[in-house]
């Protein structure tokens, strides 16, 4: 399985990157085999809530299959950006493009709260993620497969209330992945978990991302999580992208390594210096 992941890039994806992302300088050796991801082009994106302008012109290109982390102080607009990408808010100005027409099933969101239906068994909760394919005959099998991927197939007939916080979030991940999305938007999905569960969830996220090749956008307040998972870390300040940091560390990454710690430190100092200015 792991060796299969190390095969060379399909031509289409190379072309994609050549066209859209010369500045990204990704030199990752291991690419997912399936390039099911979608590229993301954001131009001049603005969003206000009342008089409060949350996003003040975001320009961003994310190539196919990239794992992008967005960090920033609370209220900087990072969650708003994610919600706009996921289509949960309307755009005031600018555009978000995926390079082609997308189906609702192509883009999935995972929130800080698992948001499982308490009155539905685990398997039924995962089936919700199939969207319009819920009624199809293989819905059960697909939901079971997604549960197997997150290692919870033995809990298929349980009520969500008996699961631990980490297990609930894994079910939510299975629900998000069951429709094989091409973009996965993650809004601090691990924020409410304890440190150990967090690390194992990070590993799980990285694994499914590498297996499935979707484009991942992770909003987090945890800079070490951002550098551990992402190819690229965006720092948002006052509604604009203030820094765009490429993380070149090879995967699997060693948490706490000097390289990652150095990056984490420099991103943190960006964040803190912004704090000093205000």
């Amino acid at each position: 399985m792991q060796t299969a992941l190390r095969t060379s890039l399909p031509e289409t994806e190379l072309a994609d990157r050549a066209n859209f992302a010369p500045q990204a300088r990704i030199v990752r050796e291991e690419r997912p085999v399936q390039t099911s991801g979608l590229p993301l082009s954001i131009r001049g994106l603005r969003k206000s809530f009342g008089d409060n302008e949350v996003l003040r012109g975001i320009d961003l290109h994310i190539p196919v299959g990239q794992f992008v982390a967005i960090v920033g102080k609370s209220g900087c607009g990072k969650s708003t950006l994610l919600r706009l990408v996921a289509g949960l808010e309307t755009i005031d100005a600018g555009s978000i493009g995926f390079g082609q027409d997308v189906q609702p099933e192509d883009i999935r969101v995972m929130f800080q709260e698992p948001r499982l239906l308490p009155w539905a068994r685990v398997l039924d909760n995962v089936e919700v993620g199939l969207g319009r394919d819920r009624a199809s005959s293989d819905a059960h099998a697909r939901a079971e497969k997604a549960l197997t991927e997150v290692g919870l197939v033995d809990k298929r007939d349980q009520w969500p209330s008996v699961l631990s916080g980490g297990q609930k979030q894994r079910v939510a991940l299975a629900r998000a992945l069951v429709s094989r999305p091409r973009v996965l938007a993650l809004d601090e999905p691990l924020g409410a978990l304890d440190a150990l569960t967090r690390i194992s969830m990070q590993r799980l996220l990285e694994r499914v991302w590498r297996d499935q090749g979707f484009t991942a956008i992770l909003v987090t307040h945890d800079v070490s999580e951002a550098v551990a998972l992402a190819d690229r870390v965006l720092v948002i300040e006052e509604g604009r992208i203030a820094h765009d940091v490429t993380v070149n560390a090879a995967r699997p990454r060693e948490r706490g390594s000097v390289e990652l710690a150095g990056l984490e430190g420099s991103i943190l100092s960006h964040l803190l210096s912004a704090d000093d200015r205000t």
Binding site: F111, L117, G131, R175
Partner: peptide, 24 residues
């Protein structure tokens, strides 16, 4: 939040009522 979740996952109004609002 559950209602928003239902909408994201493409539930129709009827489905949203049957699967989310009424059981809730």
């Amino acid at each position: 939040q559950l209602i928003e979740m239902g909408r994201i996952y493409g539930m129709s109004d009827g489905e949203l009522f049957r699967r989310v609002i009424f059981p809730g």
